[in-house]
Design a protein around this nucleic acid. Sequence first.
DNA 1: GGAAGAACGTA
DNA 2: CGTACGTTCTTCCG
Length: 952
Amino acid sequence: MSVPAVSRTALPARSAGTPVRVVGLSVTPPRLADVTTTSSATSDDAVLDGPRPRLLLVDGHSLAYRAFFALPAENFSTSTGQVTNAVYGFTSMLINLLRDEAPTHVGVAFDVSKRTFRTEEYPEYKAGRASTPTEFLGQVDLVKEVLAALRIRVVTKEGYEADDVIATLTGAARAQGAEVLVVTGDRDAFQLVDDATTVLYPRKGVSDLARMTPAAVEEKYGVRPERYGDLAALVGESSDNLPGVPGVGPKTAAKWLTAHGDLEGLVAGVGSLTGKAGQSLRDHLDQVLRNKRLNAPVRDLELPVVVDDLAVRPWDREEVHRVFDGLEFRVLRDRLFATLSADEPEVDGGFAVSAERPAGEDAAAWLAAHAAPGGPASGVAVLGRWSGGAGDAWGLALAGADGATAWFDLRELSPEAESALAAWLADESAPKVLHDAKTALHALAERGTPLEGLSADTALAAYLCQPDQRSYDLADLAVRFLQRELRVDEGSSDPGEEQGVLDLDGDASGPDEGQLACVRAAATLELSQVLAQQVEQRGGTALLRDLELPLVPLLAQMEADGIAVDTTALERLEGEFAEVVADAAEEAYAAIGGQKINLGSPKQLQVVLFEQLGMPKTKRTKTGYTTDAEALADLNVRQPHPFLDHLLRHRDASRLRQTVEGLLKSVAADGRIHTTFQQTIAATGRLSSTDPNLQNIPIRTAEGRRIREAFVVGRDAEVLLTADYSQIEMRIMAHLSGDEGLIEAFRSGEDLHRFVGARVFGVEPADVTGEMRAKIKAMSYGLAYGLSAFGLSRQLTIPVDEARGLMDDYFARFGGVRDYLRGVVEEARATGFTETVLGRRRYLPDLTSDNRQRREIAERMALNAPIQGSAADVIKLAMLGVERALRSQDLRSRLLLQVHDELVVDVAPGEREAVEALLREEMGTRVQERTRLSVPLDVSVGVGASWHEAGH
DNA sequence: GGAAGAACGTA
DNA sequence: CGTACGTTCTTCCG
């Protein structure tokens, strides 16, 4: 028996819901005829034994119809007006099936006409159904076009239904030992289920399929699959217009069938049935038998195809492009090629590394031979750590473009090797590729070894490609983009030795340390090449090269500098807040009869509030009722109680105390706080700050602002300066939307919300009241987040109708904004991504989800990402400009922090005026020019001895 | 010891 | 039924 290899057809055992690796469509499937039944055809284990064929049979009409109702038609139409929701949903589901089930054979069955042998016997069969919408009918042919492009056979039989075709093919395939998957929304197919035949039944939408195995059928209906037809005959099937026995439901029917074996046995013993149900069955026996004849699928049709004809064939790529282009399915086409375009290489092998250990003069020789300045980039992996202002580097591995790797233990480096290495690292003309370069820069800096010539950072490149990922672990990237494990290739290591994976944060001691570091360096270098192409494909090359990459050393420097804090002031504050906490806690306990509950426990609070005090229930959370500040304040209005006051005071004070304690803990030996800016976390392109987070230091309340007083000007500086953009997101909105009114608002220099309010309310700007302005402000900002009328009404505590009216009035005056917001979502749905002013993309596949909640979340993300992301582009660009200007003017002032729309600078003595001018110029004019923004960028600057004083 | 949830700080 | 984050605490689980 010769079995053509299907790569990895030995499928892994799968549990429900576990996606299965792709088997390329272009591989040659086994011919069923070649695969004589091995072992027992009904054993699930057979799947693991070899290339057992898997036949996927789809009820085309049924699935497309499902998709038609699951996906909103208004979101799925081509520019010519053709509605495509059913084709889209069907195709999406098909791609998922091909990916997850990896069938070797596929067929799609369609009904051909309304007239079948069933309507001959029973004219009312399937009568009473709502007539099929015309927008659907037109899409059936489109579905067939898609199938043709994918070279999937369509099977029909005049006078019969898709179900009969499926039943016949199932029987034939099973006889040949194949496994069968039937995808249909017709429950009659459950009769086909057996140990190797599974029905995938759409539960809801187009992505949620119930896996109906024998056990699943039995659990749901109480009978084995082969008896399902009997059960349905008794109970009836409303969608087929087959009435059941009155008074008999699935429970009774299952009970009877179990007792009598099957319908035949039940009919034979019908006389012995007791009760009303029994009599009802005797009265409707003919109808039951007719139901049975009609719902039993025909299993022995003469078909124009045999199972072998359904073997998966390589699709017609040109045709796929033509059809998908016509349907404007850009995202889906990409998904198709990404997940199914064959030849996805197996994850195999690691990295063969030479891992030389050049010492002394050999170090210089190695560098000259394998990593010469002016040549191609080398991979660099640094073993080290840095956090909160302190760190160390103890090892360094290099991978030359020629494949050679070398490893240096920085703790025992000879002076010759050390100087050779340091010179190479500092040589800008020796290009270097790192993964997470910022950490490496810090670690090396601890050894007094600057690194220049950073030409790529694989973590950043991966981030630009897939910004929604939360981490960009080198090992994961190696598997995903290189199909390799991050380990020493077997050929070059001791086969008896356990393969370790080096953890950068670990102790990194042990015999393999150097080798594994070399693997990292080699992987980084290889990865950078693959990722460079990926970035290029996404139009992100300039963004990476000119923005994100140059930002790395700047962020490293900001982190290393840190910001000075007045620890004495912080300690004093901690004490004050602690007193308030203790006081508030005492009074809170007293207010509830001296119970000493944990005021920080929502669970215990709920007992007190809703059970003991009998307060009205608040909004639900997953685990109970919310006790958040808003809800508590609301309760306090409806049912005032001193406990609530003390609780809220306690909350505020303990949070402030926590914040202060956290800050105190992170003050480094130099009296400064060194945060870490994360450059690859926020999907929109923003930075984030951790350990500690200096981007969420309180500012709204007077008490909170006292914390800002403890961030002070540094020892060698004269004053602290903050520069922030005013209304940057609204300005971006004005630019992106091109709305004339909004652009004019910014060019006029008038207060934005006053200007907009005047237009919306139809009054003079001077007559815009504070209340009006507040409403406009909330709405303007809300728009950038996808705020609904409901949300706006809730936030402003006004009726929904009023909120809706407000939005309507707004859009009537600023139609460009409405058009933009609508257009940005539609475009993202079509292309699969949103884009910022600098071409930063965010991919949002959920925009075409059939799950409304997911889709709407994605829509709000699509609204916000270009705005928030462009603002992030703007300030990043500004930071680079500011830094460059500081250097070129030989100023000693230092950029310390970035808080999304604000920069904080330690101003060196005598530089205040120069720095302020420079900041205004770079943040404002220069950035506006470079991004070609149609509105000016307004920058406000403040100075003071503390962050609080410098603020505005 | 880690995960999940609730709560809340910033832009 | 408003986006993007990070931190802290409690609670629950193993």
